[in-house]
Design a protein around this nucleic acid. Structure first.
Lengths: 130, 130
DNA sequence: CTGTATCCAAGTGGATACTG
DNA sequence: CAGTATCCACTTGGATACAG
């Protein structure tokens, strides 16, 4: 999200720099299912695949698995396989995942406090522009 | 992001409910260019279209205009046209936009503090899984 | 139960050309 | 200068079928 200039050159924001941590975080939590998974695990502590699937309305198997794999890879949750028959798999937030949950709660707070103002602004804009 | 149950039924997260403020906020700031525009305007206060275009690397005219229109519609910034020749257009955050900037800064703080841990987790995951 | 693999429709966004 | 309009390549994600 823009690097601090060290050479006196003007700052130029660059969404493409792989080194931009903010961009990467936004790409992660901007994903449709990521925050839902994190919030669900934050509330329940530990959940099975089937519980997550039931809890998150509309998610397909493909997207739930893909989301969980990505979050596991990022160190935000752990995946525990119990080799019973049938197999049981549990997911749980890591400390890193729980700290991200706090950040997501800030977003949630802003959203719940201010999205109605956004709605009002939209209604007014749409009225003005037909 | 899940509604509080009022009838004793289990909570079910639903990313589709238009009424979910968190989902809508995430959709907004998850957009590739939105946060870059907001942060740029937060830093500079007021900027012309051409200044934004120069400041944000890689943005196309189409996407910059589209992003600015969306943010104007949401009441997050104002658009001021000065009918000179050639025309001059300035963009500036509204108070609502500045309050969102604060929230974005929280994200930025988490990202700068923890994305290196995510990198480490990814490296370890990729090593384990070939 | 917990996935994996494949197909494909819809959405996203860059490039290019043109305009008040 | 500050856009608008159009085309199209690429990505995203749901549906479906299959598997350990």
């Amino acid at each position: 999200m823009g690097r601090t200039p060290v050479d006196g050159q003007p700052v130029r924001f660059n969404a493409f720099t792989a080194s931009c941590p903010s961009r990467r975080l936004l790409d992660t939590i901007g994903d449709k299912w990521v925050s839902l998974v994190i919030v669900a695990l934050g509330l329940e502590g530990r959940m099975r695949y089937s519980e997550l699937s039931a809890r998150i309305a509309g998610v397909s198997q493909k997207m739930l698995t893909q989301t969980l794999r990505g979050l596991e890879r990022d160190g935000l949750l752990t995946r525990t396989v119990t080799p019973s028959v049938p197999v049981r798999v549990d997911y749980e937030l890591t400390p890193l995942g729980r700290s991200l949950l706090d950040t997501i709660r800030h977003l949630k707070d802003w959203a719940e406090a201010h999205m109605s103002e956004v709605d009002d602004a939209r209604a007014m804009y749409d009225r003005k522009h037909q």
